[in-house]
């Protein structure tokens, strides 16, 4: 078995598991009950899925110019995904589109009620 074969097998494993995680993200996106839960599916398994696909691609390309671009894609994905998820999550919470019957506890609501006594 040559080094090239090992790299190909590794690349294949990475690509397939990355694709599986992206599929799971898609299923979760369709299936979960409200937007906050859906954000989990949309932003999370997809992060690892993308990283695995980038790793698989890097193993196949084996070319410095391409690999440095892949590294940047990964880094910016890691840096921006939480920010995007937070912005959407925060907007949804404030707009009140949350399935409260599925929440075990909501400590943010308690604190917001403490901070702003109902004036209306």
């Amino acid at each position: 078995m040559t080094v090239q074969t090992v790299a190909d097998v590794l690349a294949g494993t990475c690509l397939i598991s990355g694709a599986f995680l992206s599929l799971a993200a898609g299923v979760g996106l369709l299936r979960f009950p409200d937007l906050l839960n859906r954000m989990h599916a949309a932003t999370k398994p997809q992060v690892l899925g993308l990283l695995l696909i980038l790793a698989g691609t890097a193993l196949r390309l084996q070319n410095t110019i391409d690999i440095t671009t892949l590294v940047l894609v990964g880094v910016f994905q890691l840096a921006t995904a939480p920010v995007a998820a937070h912005m959407v999550g925060r907007a949804v919470y404030r707009a009140g589109h949350v399935r409260r019957d599925l929440l075990i506890v909501d400590e943010l609501a308690e604190d917001r009620a403490d901070a702003q006594p109902p004036s209306r």
Binding site: L36, M39, H40, T43, K44, P45, V47, L48, L78, A79, A81, P82, A85, H86, G89, R90, Y93, L108
Partner: peptide, 13 residues
């Protein structure tokens, strides 16, 4: 960031 990136948790505020 770390809590957000690990699946299952999302920063709301």
């Amino acid at each position: 960031e770390a809590v957000s990136l690990v699946p299952g948790s999302l920063i709301v505020d």
